[in-house]
């Protein structure tokens, strides 16, 4: 399988304080970028339940709780805590030259 990386510049590192999250539109994809313990996590900003923006939810430890119906997801692997078969898409992140990049490979499918 030919898997191509699609690294997209998201934000500058100093634009997102630790423990915070921000909603981004990257090449038409709704992405939620989070910073936790110095690490950046990127997941789809659409809740797999009813497509609510997860950016309106609350982050506690590594768990984002959707503001619409309280569905909880692990931001590290996207798993829904009450049924791990359901996942919110997770994207790779990397930091280079003071900026955060998100790998959108597989996004928009």
């Amino acid at each position: 399988m030919n898997v191509e990386s699609r690294w997209i510049l998201a934000i500058r590192v100093d634009e997102l304080p630790d423990g915070e999250k921000t909603a981004l539109l990257l090449e038409g994809n709704k992405v939620l970028l989070l910073r936790k313990e110095g690490v950046f996590f990127a997941i789809s900003n659409k809740c797999p339940h009813m497509e609510c923006p997860l950016s309106k939810g609350t982050l506690e430890d590594y768990v984002i709780k959707c503001g619409c119906h309280d569905w909880k997801f692990d931001i590290r692997n996207g798993e829904f805590l009450d049924a791990i078969e359901i996942k919110v898409p997770v994207y790779e992140t990397k930091v280079m030259d003071g900026s955060v990049f998100v790998n959108l490979e597989g996004a928009g499918i």
């Binding site: 339940h49 309280d70 009450d82 049924a83």
Partner: peptide, 17 residues
Amino acid sequence: EREHDMKLVCPCIPFHR
């Protein structure tokens, strides 16, 4: 009660698996 009612939003399968 929010905690009770949110477990009844369709599809509620995950909470009554």
